[in-house]
């Protein structure tokens, strides 16, 4: 069984692997968590995002949420903001798309145009 005690150990190993956040140059990922986003699976999208970040050891990415953006039929929506670049919004992001977006856009800096929506 896991216990809160585990966090002490995790904390020390995890901290060593974070550098960028303090510098404010982090990549940001924003998940749409309005009612339609949640109904469309935003929570599972977030789970996939966190798992992919963990798999690739991307510990400096800041992940946050936002409410309904008014594109209810395009949910789940995910924004990717690379440092110094404009926000890119992806539509209908399921777990599979989330992983691809992280591999292509976050890691390689290549926007996956076919899933992007104008806003």
């Amino acid at each position: 069984m896991k216990s809160l005690e585990d966090l002490k150990k995790l904390r020390d190993s995890a901290r060593q692997m974070m550098h960028l956040r303090e510098g404010g140059d982090s990549v940001r990922i924003v998940i749409g968590m309005g009612t339609c986003g949640i109904a469309a699976g935003a929570r599972e999208t977030l789970a996939a995002v966190m798992q992919e970040l963990e798999r690739l050891h991307l510990y400096d990415v800041v992940v946050t949420q936002t409410g309904c953006a008014g594109f209810c039929d395009k949910e789940p929506l995910v924004d990717v903001i690379l440092p110094g670049q404009p926000r890119v919004t992806y539509a209908k992001v399921d777990g599979e798309r989330a992983r691809r977006i992280i591999d292509e856009h976050v890691v390689n800096g290549r926007v996956i145009e076919q899933w992007v929506i104008e806003r």
Partner: peptide, 10 residues
């Protein structure tokens, strides 16, 4: 340590 750290969320 931030709460959105992937090892912490896992």
């Amino acid at each position: 340590l931030p709460l959105d750290h992937p090892q912490i969320t896992a």
